[in-house]
Computed example of a mutant assay.
Amino acid sequence: MPHFVIDCSASILEAHTEEHIIEQVHIVANTTKLFDENDIKVRLHPYEKYLVGNKREDFIHVFAYVLEGRTIVQKAELSKTIVSKLTEMFPQILNIAISVSDFEKATYCNRNML
């Protein structure tokens, strides 16, 4: 926790490597001070086949899953910070977005909690 899952058009990898994109999202998420750095998880899924508004336009969408307890303001700032960084990295891509979803402490479980 948290998880940042990046869906994107595969062609964006011509500008930056998967490793670099993952690293930059990790760094930006860490700068918010909302999470312990060792808990931040980032994954990237490039797609060869996709449509955006019925067109084949490059896109990046980050799905952020965070443990409940952050304020709306904190989550909005997280969103703006990540979208700003990705826009800086990919100025030619018009479709860059993020959605932040909370998951409940009561229903969350990992191996260390067993």
Rank of each mutant, 00 (worst) to 15 (best):
M1W: 04
F4P: 11
F4G: 07
V5Q: 15
I6W: 14
I6G: 09
C8H: 10
S9A: 12
A10S: 13
A10Q: 08
I12E: 04
E14T: 07
E14G: 02
A15D: 13
A15M: 08
A15H: 11
H16V: 03
T17H: 07
E19W: 00
H20N: 11
H20A: 02
I21T: 09
E23T: 02
H26P: 00
I27C: 13
V28A: 07
A29F: 04
N30D: 05
T31G: 03
T32Y: 00
T32N: 01
T32Q: 02
K33V: 03
L34A: 01
F35M: 01
F35L: 03
E37I: 00
E37V: 01
N38V: 08
N38Y: 03
D39S: 04
D39M: 07
I40F: 10
V42P: 08
R43L: 13
L44P: 14
L44Y: 07
H45I: 12
P46I: 04
P46R: 09
E48C: 13
K49F: 15
Y50R: 06
G53I: 01
K55C: 09
K55N: 14
R56N: 06
D58L: 08
F59T: 00
F59D: 04
V62T: 13
F63N: 15
F63M: 12
Y65S: 12
Y65L: 05
V66E: 14
V66D: 14
G69I: 01
R70F: 01
T71D: 03
I72Y: 11
V73I: 11
A76I: 05
E77W: 06
S79L: 04
S79C: 13
K80R: 14
K80T: 05
V83D: 00
V83F: 09
K85W: 03
E88A: 09
E88H: 12
M89E: 10
F90R: 04
Q92K: 09
Q92Y: 02
L94K: 15
N95Y: 02
I96L: 05
I96N: 05
A97P: 05
I98E: 00
I98Q: 09
I98W: 01
S99W: 03
V100I: 11
S101R: 15
D102F: 02
D102P: 00
D102Y: 00
F103L: 04
E104M: 10
E104K: 15
K105P: 14
K105Q: 08
A106T: 10
A106Y: 08
Y108R: 10
N110A: 14
R111P: 02
N112A: 08
M113F: 08
M113Y: 05
M113K: 02
L114A: 11
